[in-house]
């Protein structure tokens, strides 16, 4: 059982796939810049900003899951990493809520 885990760990994506991901990342970055420039030409912020955030999350996940091959690796690495990311979002989210929302609703 330990052996199969070890083999699985070393099943990395190939060079072709790496290049594909790289091209996708480049295109997404280009898209981000185009979105940003479109704000001046009337793109609504309520559309553009969520789109920017979604693009960022997609880029983040592409690098994490393929370049850092978390998708193919031992699940323990996935846990350690996403516990860190999740905890950061949770606690700093609470801090942000405390700073922004609290004063606005009259506390």
């Amino acid at each position: 059982m330990a052996d199969t885990e070890y083999d699985k760990e070393h099943a990395h994506p190939g060079v072709g796939q790496y290049v594909e991901i790289g091209v996708i990342l480049a295109v997404m970055t280009l898209l981000e810049v185009i979105l940003f420039e479109s704000f001046d030409r009337g793109l609504l912020k309520s559309v553009g900003i969520p789109a920017l955030i979604i693009l960022t999350i997609l880029k983040f996940m592409l690098v994490v899951l393929w370049f850092m091959h978390l998708r193919f690796d031992h699940k323990l690495f996935r846990r350690v990493f996403f516990v860190g990311v999740g905890l950061a979002f949770l606690v700093f989210g609470i801090v942000a809520v405390n700073f922004y929302v609290g004063p606005r609703i009259g506390f």
Binding site: L87, V91, N98, G102, P103, F107
Partner: peptide, 18 residues
């Protein structure tokens, strides 16, 4: 332990909900 830190700050004015 990660969800209780603001009990050190009750008197700092962080608001009744918090």
């Amino acid at each position: 332990g990660w969800g209780v830190w603001a009990h050190h700050m009750f008197a700092a004015g962080i608001g009744p909900v918090a």
